[in-house]
């Protein structure tokens, strides 16, 4: 009955609040594809949370996750060290990113989304696309995966909210400029905060540029059994964990997603406070 244990091979902080864990999971690493996620439980009392994989290597038999330490579970993740184990790890889940040669693809990522964006850019590049990456963060210290993304991109644009590096402003400003310059863009992929994905989708809609967004609804089982992660796409209910996590950004009801993701805020606060108090 006791779950398997998944050992952490490497643990590091990318920023004071962002933890990267490389976890031994050869069975998952062998099958994982860009865009897919895992469900993990830190310990026996833990919650099951979905995290999109930032990397996976069949050769090394490991997968990599990157978490922003924002709630109790991600704070717990932040305390783990190499040699520690996770109580439960399930994956790869969800539909992988559709990998085809679109021509030129613009990938837009913000904050923690950059970690998830990396394997997508890498895979789309491998599929023969010309890759333009636009990455953003609050300031230069919070920019993660910049070097990795640069290596697999044909063009890279960096943005910071405070202007400490690259463009002083939002990732959407850069995309707008490229669109206004009438650059050839065949596909847009956006991953990051809901508000960012919504802005990007609104920006590309009038130009009919197909735009994929990677959503992060609240999940419980991650295999389509509970419907916690349901999202409205094109007026229809979709199950985020099996139909997604990627959807057509022009058709996603972002207001509903925002409201649904706030539904346990009070409890999340209680959880976090008791954890921080206990620490």
């Amino acid at each position: 009955m006791c779950a398997n244990m998944y050992e952490i091979v490497k643990a590091e902080k990318l920023t004071p609040d962002v933890t990267r864990l490389e976890i031994a999971a050869p069975h998952i690493a062998k099958k994982a594809m860009a865009g897919q996620f895992v469900m993990l439980t830190v310990d026996e009392h833990g919650e099951r949370i979905p995290l999109t994989m930032a990397d996976f290597s069949a050769e090394k038999g490991t997968i990599t996750i990157v978490a922003l330490e924002i709630g109790k579970t991600t704070k717990k993740l932040g305390t783990l060290k190499a040699g520690d184990s996770l109580f439960s790890l399930v994956g790869p889940l969800g539909m992988p990113t559709e990998l085809k040669n679109y021509g030129t693809v613009v990938c837009v990522g913000g904050g923690i989304g950059l970690a998830l964006m990396y394997p997508v850019v890498r895979s789309l590049k491998k599929a023969g696309n010309r890759m333009i990456s636009i990455i953003g963060a609050k300031n230069k210290d919070l920019l993660i995966y910049e070097d990795e993304i640069e290596k697999v991109s044909d063009e890279l644009y960096v943005c910071t909210d405070d202007g400490s590096k690259g463009h002083h402003g939002f990732v959407s400003d850069v995309l707008k400029r490229l669109v206004d310059e009438k650059r050839k863009i065949d596909e847009v992929y956006a991953v990051g905060p809901i508000i960012m994905m919504k802005v990007i989708a609104n920006l590309t809609r009038p130009y009919n540029i197909h735009t994929v967004v990677s959503l992060n609804p609240i999940m419980v089982d991650g295999t389509g059994m509970c419907g916690s992660c349901r999202v409205i796409v094109d007026g229809k209910t979709k199950i985020g964990c099996v139909d997604g996590p990627e959807f057509d950004g022009h058709k996603v009801d972002f207001e509903n997603l925002t409201a649904r993701n706030r539904r346990y805020l009070a409890e999340e606060e209680i959880s976090l406070r008791s954890f921080m108090g206990a620490k």
């Binding site: 833990g46 579970t73 509970c226 409890e267």
Partner: peptide, 20 residues
């Protein structure tokens, strides 16, 4: 969802268990 939260994840013991 309701029963999985409560039975599998033991939400009835929140916040001792993390699932709300």
């Amino acid at each position: 969802e309701f029963l999985t939260r409560v039975n599998l994840m033991k939400a009835f013991n929140f916040p001792d268990y993390d699932t709300p």
